[in-house]
Simulated assay, not measured.
Amino acid sequence: MRDEWAVTADGLVKRFGDRRVVDGVDIRVPTGSIYGVLGPNGAGKTTTLRMLLGIIEPDAGRRTLLGFDAPRDASDRVGYLPEERGLYPGMKAREAIAFLGALRGLDLKTGRARAVTLMEGAGLGHAVDEKIRKLSKGMAQLVQLLGSVVHQPDLLVLDEPFSGLDPVNQERLEKLILVERDRGATVLFSTHIMSHAERLCDRLAIIAGGKRRFEGTVDDARGMLPQRVRYTPQRPDPAIAGILPADAVSDGAGWRFELPGEGIERLLVRLIDAGHGIAGLSIERPGLHEAFVRIVGEQEAQA
């Protein structure tokens, strides 16, 4: 039976000089899930991931990785894509993937065969024998990612994997993450791009200023903000403002306001009875970006 948690962290602290880059972070990553660590640049995301992997040691706190108290004991079961990309430019793509697999204990023959399959699945089959220096930045980044999964790890850790990718390669990367999750791997990735986290994550943590500000599902985060209503009357009439909630703001043809606590039905009846009618009505849930701004504050979110 697999452990309930693939990764745990309790009170992780890391100081660089007088600065606490990570300040008491707690994390629980469920086995078999996609888990995102979100935060603005400089929030402490990369340092947290490196402590979880055992690349650097925390100054305080405890962490486990795939059940091991010493993360490096699980290194052959982990795939890691660091924030700093790097491949040997003279290597062919297939050889680069097989080489990265060999560093995790995979034999080169198996690695080369899997490299071809992985590149074809990622839409890069035409570049199997191309040297890294001839690939675009996005393609080279995907090759390095394939090298982190070629040994079929139980845990895949990706640090800002979408950074620098064009939309086509971002979509390829999202598909690859889902394939790895469906294979049974746990995926842990950091990002400051909300849209990817919103589409992919089963759970997420939001870190800002070295502290964990939130942990839960995307719906949990979005649920911290009220839903908003967009209402369009059959014809413009300033008198509508007297019926709508006090926070209603006109956007020209229609109005926007928070969903009343008692629901929308009574308000609609009053609008219809007053002869304003309904030309359009939608109830919109706040996005993850809006929730992120509420959680970390406007100033840190802008950063």
Rank of each mutant, 00 (worst) to 15 (best):
E298V: 15
G67K: 01
W255I: 06
D69S: 12
I295F: 08
A127D: 02
L155S: 00
L267M: 09
L146K: 05
G147F: 09
R20S: 11
G275W: 03
H196S: 14
T64A: 15
G184H: 03
P153Y: 02
M1T: 15
G101A: 05
A122L: 09
L288V: 08
I283E: 15
Q170R: 15
I278S: 12
L281P: 00
A74R: 00
I206V: 13
E130M: 09
A70D: 15
A197M: 09
R270V: 08
E95S: 12
T46G: 06
M139L: 15
V143Q: 00
G209V: 02
E95Q: 13
G79Y: 01
G242P: 02
P82Y: 06
R228A: 09
A208I: 05
G209F: 02
S195N: 14
G297W: 04
F257R: 04
G242M: 05
E174S: 12
I55R: 07
A113D: 10
T117W: 09
S190K: 08
G254A: 08
P238Y: 02
L146F: 07
E130G: 04
F292W: 08
D273P: 05
L173W: 10
S190L: 09
V37A: 12
K45L: 09
L49Q: 04
R112S: 07
A9N: 05
G242L: 04
R294L: 10
G275F: 06
